[in-house]
Design a protein around this nucleic acid. Structure first.
Length: 895
DNA sequence: GATGCAACGCTTTTT
DNA sequence: GCGTTGCATC
């Protein structure tokens, strides 16, 4: 595999090491790098043998431990660079690690071929042994678009109604299974039954077969096929186990089950003769039904059949499979009993920063580490070097509300600094305006000190990307430079994918998906009819589409027009392919884009973004220069493609909380702390308490990004799905410790504090203490809130009255925009009994409603009606006057 | 095969 | 309220 040549900066202080790192004898001079570490960090670096879990809280020097540990291993000569497996999740993290290790030990990192993302290492291993899992070593890696396209074809072949059984739903299911390390045979039947009347499993199987004929793997396969490879080929597994003397894992809390299994397999200790002989591939348990793991007893022997509980996808039998073999390896060894010490695996992570449960990450992996890797040493890093006291205290106490955590107490020796500020705004626009003003204020203050405020040190962290727009608008008005981080990724852009598809077809004529993508881009008059014909022909003859195209365009089976178009296209591809090896690949790319009419297409396009797209294409070609050939470039691209050229100019950073993980800023703004948005309603609905806890971790991540200033905002009104909706301050606000929080506009601050439970949020009551809030918006917000019109039941829901947005509310919500000055009488209604947190969560997790269809019911706002349909706890009701609406059952009374 | 209109849905995102 | 997507029409 062509290892992409990245422009890794040269080590800062290149110290040539004579004879390589290994030459440094064991117990070489006391390493200077150890001196910079605190005792816990040092322990984490120096505990080289056996399994280690480093619980590294936010800002405690996690990356430093990881990189120093690698340097230490190399320095002691305990392993060659090529014997260290170091995995990260993102390419960025991998690159950073490479750079930092490089700085510590010199160019030697060039020789660390196994430092990379789970996926890039997975590909590397898979390419070496592709034939063992039914692929050729030049297999293509499918992106999400390709994946959906393949699944659509499968569904079509099965004659399933795409309307009822959408391809993306199946894609999500399959992804989920792959995340959990499940091959088609291993999918619990109960679970697969939920799609297409029980065809789920069969479709998954068909999909996998199709991938094999396409010589392709999707992202999930990169790991899953590795696991299969290891399970079925003991010799291969053993060779890797022996190769990797040390395993290091970054962000362990984000690993999914597949990644866990992969690590566990590699971290098994091998003895010279294990039970894993090639003749007996460990199929013994592969077909077993999934078993629920009991909460405390992971190995409940009872073979309760059926569905693995969704909350706990780690399947006991898979685990036992591994464990059993591990044990067998010892038991069955002949001669001298081989009792090797456990593998040197070191996982670093923070359970309090696990925010990717929704894409398959298993917090459980980190919570159960000591069980999974017996004898593991757990080291806690609790000294925070990032945030000042108040911020850290606020973040710590917030996260303390979570139950499912290992528990850490972050400490700082830093000063208390500024309290965390909480500010209420009337609506999201005012929120943006207030933040804009604060930033300008920071700039002014800096100027008074005779400095420029580094805007790079300011970040606005939002829960959902739609929140960004408001800030962008505002900052454009103010002329405040900003950058949005994590927008649509470069490689996801249509023009980039199209261009890549051309190159893929050149490099690999059998790449049907790429061919399909561009066969009629730009328009060549080759539409669905032609494509269908090609498909039929290709399937009949079992050949790739390009071959089918070549064959068909030479006969007169096709109408003359498409025939000629197709013939031209095929000829062009032949021409390009012929040039492939005789000219630089960048030049070839230019020719291809030119001759295919692709650049032309965008040049003729007069839409606003056409120019940007052409620019992107140029950027693409520029980025190809880093690679030696087309092959190497495509390999890289299928795994990465970072957006290049982050501008050097100072600018405020706008991003989601998710993409802020791992970053830090002097000053962090956290807008949108409202029930429904943060914590996000959908998270609560879909994952209940676990969802709430993940949201809380997200809040914790947000706060701990700040070094010196953390400012939280909430708006009383927000536009959701185009409708103005009144909102309730986030329960997380109430969970913040008073002593470390300052309610910015409140006079004297503390007057109203002390109420707990967000039923009577202290933030609701703020205006009843004769406050002297300065912001008009704050006053308006409070007045408005008390009015009770928008949200008279006080339920912590997004939309009033439990109505789902599609039903439309007869509230003032349909005003184009809440009138800012014209408020109406502020008669404060006492809040109705509150739903406590636990109940809310329980209520929204789809418990079946006790109401039945046809029942006569009453709703506070809509009056009497009949239940038309029941969907979990959501009822569709035909109201006598108000018409049909969808409502949560807790708002309904029996008559 | 291109164009226009209705229907849907709408958190977070890496590889 | 907006953008995408699928289907029907010309």
């Amino acid at each position: 595999m062509a290892e992409p040549k990245r422009n890794d900066p040269a080590p800062l202080s290149p110290q040539p090491i004579a004879g390589g790192i290994a030459a440094r004898a064991l117990g070489a001079r006391a390493a200077p790098y150890l001196g910079d570490l605190n005792p816990e960090q040092r322990e984490a670096v120096e505990t080289l043998d056996g399994p280690v879990l480093v619980l590294a809280g936010a800002g405690t020097g996690k990356t430093r431990v990881l990189t120093t540990r690698i340097a230490h291993i190399l320095n002691l000569g305990r392993a060659h660079p090529s014997q260290i497996l170091a995995v990260t999740f993102t390419n960025k993290a991998a690159r950073e690690m490479k750079d930092r290790v490089g700085q510590m030990v010199g160019q030697i990192v060039e020789g660390m071929p196994w430092l990379g993302t789970f996926h890039s290492i997975g590909v590397k291993i898979l390419r070496r042994h592709a034939e063992l899992v039914g692929l050729k070593n030049n297999f293509t890696i499918l992106d999400v678009d390709d994946q959906i396209r393949v699944i659509k074809q499968i569904l079509e072949a099965e004659k399933l109604d795409e309307k009822r059984w959408p391809a993306r739903v199946l894609a999500m299911l399959i992804d989920g299974w792959k995340n959990r390390g499940l091959t088609p045979e291993q999918v619990p039947s109960g679970e697969a039954a939920s799609f297409a009347n029980g065809k789920g499993k069969k479709l998954y199987m068909a999909y996998q077969e199709r991938l094999k004929t396409l010589n392709a793997a999707d992202f999930g396969d990169l790991l899953l096929e590795n696991i299969r490879l290891f399970r079925q080929n003991a010799d291969v597994l053993r060779s890797f186990q022996e190769r990797f003397k040390f395993i290091l894992v970054d962000e362990y809390q984000d690993t999914n089950v597949a990644q866990y299994l992969w690590l566990k397999l590699l971290a098994q200790t091998t003895s010279s003769n294990t039970v894993l002989s090639p003749s007996s591939p460990g199929r013994d348990t592969d077909l077993g039904p999934a078993r629920d793991r009991q909460l405390d007893g992971p190995k409940s022997a009872t073979a309760d059949l059926g569905v693995a509980s969704p909350g706990d996808p780690r399947l006991a039998d898979l685990r036992e499979d591994v464990d059993a073999r591990h044990k067998a390896g010892h038991d069955e060894s002949v001669g001298i009993p081989v009792m090797r010490p456990p593998k040197n695996i070191c996982c670093v992570g923070d359970d309090d920063q696990s925010i990717y449960g929704w894409r398959g990450a298993e917090v459980d992996n980190i919570l159960r580490y000591e069980h999974d890797f017996p004898g593991a040493k757990v080291i806690r890093l609790e000294r925070n070097y990032r945030s000042t006291g108040h911020i850290l205290a606020a973040a710590s106490q917030l996260i303390a509300h979570n139950e499912g955590r290992l528990g850490k107490t972050l400490r700082t020796e830093d000063e208390l600094g500024e309290k965390v500020q909480v500010t209420g705004a009337w609506d999201s626009e005012e929120e943006a305006r207030a933040i804009g003003e604060e930033i300008e204020q920071l700039q002014r203050e800096a100027r008074e000190r005779g400095e420029d405020h580094p805007l790079d040190e300011i970040a606005i962290l939002v829960r959902a990307s739609f929140q960004m727009r408001e800030f962008e608008d505002r900052f454009i008005q103010l002329g405040l430079p900003y950058r949005v981080i994590g927008g649509p990724r470069f490689y996801e852009r249509a023009e980039i994918r199209d261009a890549l598809a051309y190159l893929r077809v050149i490099a690999q004529p059998a790449d049907d998906l790429a061919f399909e993508r561009i066969v009629n881009v730009p328009k060549r008059g080759l539409g669905d009819a032609t494509l269908q014909m090609l498909h039929d022909y290709a399937r009949k003859k079992r050949i790739p589409l390009t071959e089918a195209a070549a064959a068909l365009s030479a006969t007169d089976e096709m109408k003359p027009k498409p025939r000629l178009a197709l013939r031209d296209l095929m000829a062009a591809f032949e021409r390009w392919r012929a040039k492939k090896d005789s000219m630089p690949h960048t030049e070839l790319a230019e020719i291809v884009l030119d001759e295919s009419g692709y650049t032309d297409m965008w040049q003729k396009d007069r839409s606003a973004d056409a120019a940007g797209r052409l620019e992107n294409l140029k950027e693409l070609i520029r980025s190809m220069e880093e690679f030696e050939n087309l092959q190497g470039f495509l390999e890289h691209i299928s795994l990465v493609m970072d957006r290049e050229g982050a501008e050097a100019e100072q600018a405020v950073n706008i991003m989601t909380l998710h993409s802020a993980k791992g970053l830090e800023f002097d000053c962090v703004f956290l807008p949108g702390w409202e029930e429904g948005l943060f914590p996000h309603q959908r998270s609560l609905d879909e994952s209940g308490r676990a969802g709430l806890e993940e949201e809380r971790r997200l809040a914790h991540v947000g706060l701990t990004r700040a070094r010196k200033l953390a400012k939280i905002y909430f708006a009383t009104n927000r536009r959701i799905h185009g409708m103005w909706t009144s909102t309730v301050p986030s329960r997380f606000l109430d969970e913040l410790p008073e002593a470390h929080v300052e309610v910015k506009e409140a006079a004297g601050g503390a007057g109203g504090f002390g109420m707990s439970g967000y039923g009577a949020s202290r933030f609701d009551e703020m205006n009843s203490f004769g406050s002297s809030y300065t912001t008009p918006g704050w006053q308006r917000a409070q007045a408005r809130k008390g009015r009770g019109g928008f949200h008279d039941n006080g339920q912590p829901r997004y939309v009033p009255d439990g109505v789902f947005d599609d039903a439309g509310s007869d509230d003032d919500g349909d005003q184009p925009r809440p009138e800012k000055t014209g408020r109406r009488g502020a008669k404060r209604e006492g809040r109705k009994p509150m739903i406590i947190e636990g109940e809310l969560v329980a209520k929204s997790t789809g418990t079946l409603s006790s109401f039945t269809v046809g029942e006569r019911v009453f709703h506070q706002k809509f009056g009497n009606g009949n239940v038309v349909a029941v969907d979990g706890n959501k009822l569709t009701i035909a109201f006598d006057k108000a018409g049909e609406k969808r409502v949560v059952d807790s708002f309904i009374e029996r008559l």
